[in-house]
Every structure is written in structure tokens, then in C-alpha cells.
């Protein structure tokens, strides 16, 4: 599927050199993603609350970003991120995936994942800056705001002569809001060319399928009509994600902003959480957690 989708794209193909580098790391990235999925299940189970569905669908993309595509310095954490790629999460409810990836890439101790959603934790239910958790640059949770923030970061980088990139991940459900479209209009109209945005297009939101709750219609055509180039890939195929991110990068610095539609499955990696919206914001029982973890290989050691 990745190849087919990549063929659809009209951008320059990645070089052989880059390809070999990617190939060498794909297995590692998959292993990390497996551990991140375990972390997600264990965190949500431990807190008896949280959002496993979207966390699981976006896990591969976040792993690809933090362990392959982005140039970033976890320690010491610099809020301004000068000369670093910066990631802005818009759909803050996938905080379990975000926290796991941040911890696993060195922003804060992995053991701290055990405090998710507990009183006085730095790992708030939705990402926040107030508790000064390294890696978080903006609060998110109230939906639809992330791309606007990412534009601001990208403009600061332009003024600063900083040629690093800004990444932003949105959920598909939050595209029901108006603000993402304000932000997309700004980017298209002003040729913002140092942002790579992405949509976790898992077709599910709290109340059901996006097609039933609030149809997105031809999402690709809509975003293109706002002046963007749109790439698509299987967002749960690590190789496809990494190669699409590479294509997206090569596309920056030109005329149009670039958006990746990540075709994903909510609950990816846990059979009984897939194909339904019911695990958007529900925690597994002890038995369900055990069943889920049996499907996810422990690769980096549980926290």
C-alpha cells in the first residue's frame, strides 16, 4: 500500500542513500512502536482512564518523527527549540502515545509514565506546560488549535533565520472545528513552507464513524483546495510513514505547505480495540489489559 500511495505523489523520489538509511532503522522503529503501544495500554490501565484508541493509531507516526525524522535535543529541553525541529500536538487526548514517545526518546525518565493522570503528576490527562514536563511546548486538549500554534512557531523560525521544520499532528475528528481550516487557509494563502502537518485519519471519533458524526467528505480535495499539497500513506506501516515523511521534507521550502493524510486504524495493534470507536476514551479492565499486552512485544523493557 505504501508503494502504491507513494506512486500517487508527484514529488521527487527519495535517494538511494536515504532509502538504505531508512531500511536499516525500520525494524528498530517497529520495535520502539511496539513498546510505545505497551506503554499506552499500561498507562491507560494504570490510570483507569485515558484515550487508548487514537494513541494506538498515531503511535507509528510519533515514533517515526521522534526516532527518525526530527532533529531534536531532548536534554536539556529548550522551550524555544532554536535550531531544532519542533512538534506540536493538536489532538492532546493521545497524550499516552505522546508521553511514551517523549520518555522513550529521553525527555524525561521512563518511570514517570507510571504517574500518568495521578494527582500532582507532570503527565496531566492532556498535555500541559504548567508542570514543566520536558518536551511539551503548548497545552492541547481543547481541539482544533494545534496547527495555529505550529504556524506561530514556524513564523518565529523564519524571523530567527532558523531553517528547521515544524511538525503538527491533528486528529480527523477535530477537523469538525473551524479553527484548523482558518489555519489551513493561512498556510495556503501565505505559502507557509516550513510546516509538515499530518492528520491521523482513523475515521473514528467519540460518537462513532466520522462519516456518521460529521462527514469529512473528500478530505484530500478539501485540503488541496486550501492551497496545500497532500500526501497519503498507510500511517500504521512504518516504512510507508518514514518514506512519506522523507518525501514531505523534500517538499518543504517550496511554494506550498504539505499535509500528510495518515490512513490509520483506531486501536491499531490490539485486535479487540480495532474497528470500533468504543476505545476512543475507555480504559481496559485488568483482564483486557492482559489480553492486549499479550499482543504487544516488550522490546525496550516496561517502565
Amino acid at each position: 500500500m505504501a508503494d502504491q500511495l507513494a506512486k500517487k505523489c508527484t514529488f521527487a523520489s527519495i535517494t538511494k542513500q536515504k532509502k538504505s538509511k531508512i531500511m536499516a532503522t525500520i525494524d528498530e522503529l517497529k520495535e520502539i512502536a511496539s513498546q510505545v503501544r505497551r506503554d499506552i495500554i499500561r498507562m491507560v490501565h494504570g490510570a483507569a482512564s485515558g484515550h487508548p484508541g487514537g494513541s494506538l493509531s498515531a503511535a507509528d507516526y510519533l515514533v517515526a518523527l521522534y526516532f527518525e525524522s526530527m532533529q531534536h535535543t531532548p536534554e536539556p529541553f529548550d522551550m524555544d527549540g532554536i535550531n531544532q525541529d519542533i512538534f506540536i500536538l493538536s489532538n492532546g487526548h493521545i497524550s499516552p502515545a505522546y508521553y511514551s514517545v517523549l520518555a522513550r526518546s529521553g525527555y524525561f525518565p521512563v518511570s514517570e509514565l507510571a504517574t500518568f493522570r495521578q494527582l500532582h503528576t507532570r503527565l496531566q490527562g492532556h498535555p500541559a506546560t504548567m508542570e514543566k514536563l520536558p518536551g511539551i511546548r503548548i497545552a492541547s486538549g481543547s481541539l482544533g488549535q494545534g496547527l495555529s500554534v505550529a504556524i506561530g512557531v514556524s513564523r518565529a523560525k523564519k524571523i530567527n533565520g532558523d531553517n528547521k521544520l515544524v511538525y503538527c499532528l491533528m486528529g480527523d475528528g477535530e477537523l469538525d472545528e473551524g479553527q484548523p481550516w482558518e489555519a489551513m487557509a493561512y498556510c495556503g494563502g501565505n505559502k507557509v513552507n516550513n510546516i509538515i502537518a499530518a492528520v491521523d485519519y482513523n475515521h473514528k471519533q467519540i460518537d462513532g464513524d466520522t462519516d456518521d458524526v460529521m462527514p469529512l467528505l473528500d478530505l484530500k480535495a478539501k485540503i488541496e483546495a486550501f492551497g496545500w499539497d497532500v500526501l497519503e500513506c498507510n500511517g500504521n506501516d512504518m516504512e510507508a510513514v518514514v518514506s512519506t515523511l522523507q518525501i514531505a521534507k523534500e517538499h518543504t521550502g517550496k511554494e506550498k505547505p504539505v499535509m500528510i493524510l495518515l490512513h490509520t486504524q483506531m486501536g491499531m495493534g490490539v485486535d479487540f480495540m480495532m474497528g470500533t470507536h468504543k476505545w476512543h476514551g475507555a480504559a481496559p479492565s485488568d483482564e483486557q489489559a492482559e489480553k492486549a499486552l499479550a499482543q504487544l512485544k516488550e522490546t525496550l523493557g516496561d517502565y
Binding site: 503548548i138 495555529s148 506561530g152 512557531v153 513564523r155 482558518e182
Partner: peptide
């Protein structure tokens, strides 16, 4: 597009503005 403006302003602080 005031909502976008406030978000952009928040983002501009990340980078020292």
C-alpha cells in the same frame, strides 16, 4: 480569523518572540 491569530501568537512565543 481571530482563533488562528491567538494560536499563532502563542506559537510565536516558542522561539522567543
Amino acid at each position: 480569523a481571530e482563533a488562528n491569530m491567538i494560536g499563532m501568537a502563542a506559537g510565536l512565543t516558542i522561539g522567543g518572540k
